[in-house]
Computed example of a mutant assay.
Amino acid sequence: MKILVPVKRVIDYNVKVRVKPDGSGVDLANVKMSMNPFDEISVEEALRLKEAGKADEVIVVSIGPKQATETLRTGLAMGADRGILVQTDDSVEPLAVAKILKKVVEEEEPGLVIVGKQAIDDDCNQTGQMLAALLGWSQGTFASKVELGEGTVDVTREIDGGLQTVKLKMPAIVTTDLRLNEPRYASLPNIMKAKKKPIAEKTPADYGVDLTPRLTVIKTAEPEARQAGVKVASVGELIDKLKNEAGVL
Rank of each mutant, 00 (worst) to 15 (best):
A194V: 00
T71K: 15
E108K: 12
D160W: 07
N125W: 10
R73T: 01
E147M: 10
D240Q: 05
N30Q: 05
I41A: 11
E158A: 11
L163I: 00
S42M: 10
I120S: 04
K202A: 09
G151W: 02
P110V: 01
D206P: 05
V105G: 14
L101F: 05
G128F: 11
G208E: 02
V7I: 14
L163K: 13
P183M: 08
I63A: 03
L215D: 01
L85D: 05
K243W: 03
S187T: 09
T203I: 12
P213Y: 02
V31G: 04
V26C: 03
D90M: 14
I3M: 10
P213T: 02
A55P: 00
I173Q: 12
I41R: 15
R9G: 02
L28T: 00
E45I: 03
E222P: 03
P37R: 08
D27L: 03
M78F: 14
D27S: 02
E40Q: 12
T74F: 15
K20H: 01
L163V: 02
K20R: 07
K231V: 04
S144F: 00
D89Y: 11
K231M: 08
G83S: 02
K2T: 01
M78H: 07
V248E: 15
K193S: 14
A46W: 12
V235I: 10
V5H: 13
T165P: 05
K66M: 13
T127E: 14
L131A: 06
T175K: 11
S42Y: 09
D12G: 07
I59T: 04
C124P: 00
K167M: 07
K102G: 00
Q139C: 02
R179F: 13
L180W: 10
V174P: 12
I59E: 11
E57W: 07
I173K: 10
E93F: 06
G25H: 04
E237P: 00
D39L: 04
E158C: 07
L28M: 09
Y185S: 14
I11T: 09
K66N: 12
A132T: 08
E245N: 13
M130E: 07
A228T: 01
Y13N: 11
Q139Y: 08
L135P: 01
Y185R: 12
S42C: 14
L148K: 06
E40W: 13
M1N: 01
D210Q: 07
G75Q: 13
G83R: 03
I59H: 06
T71C: 12
Q139H: 10
A133G: 11
A52M: 09
E237F: 09
S42L: 11
W137R: 07
A98Q: 14
V58G: 06
P110A: 03
K2L: 05
G23R: 04
A194K: 09
D240R: 09
T156Q: 13
L47Y: 09
A133L: 09
A80I: 03
Q227A: 09
A225T: 02
S144G: 00
A200P: 01
L180F: 12
D56N: 03
R184N: 14
Y207T: 01
V113N: 05
W137Q: 06
L178P: 02
E222R: 14
E40T: 06
A68V: 05
P223L: 07
A246T: 00
G208R: 01
E158W: 07
G75V: 07
L249E: 11
E237I: 03
E45H: 05
E201I: 04
K169N: 06
G75N: 06
V97H: 15
P189A: 12
V17F: 08
L47F: 05
D27P: 01
S62H: 15
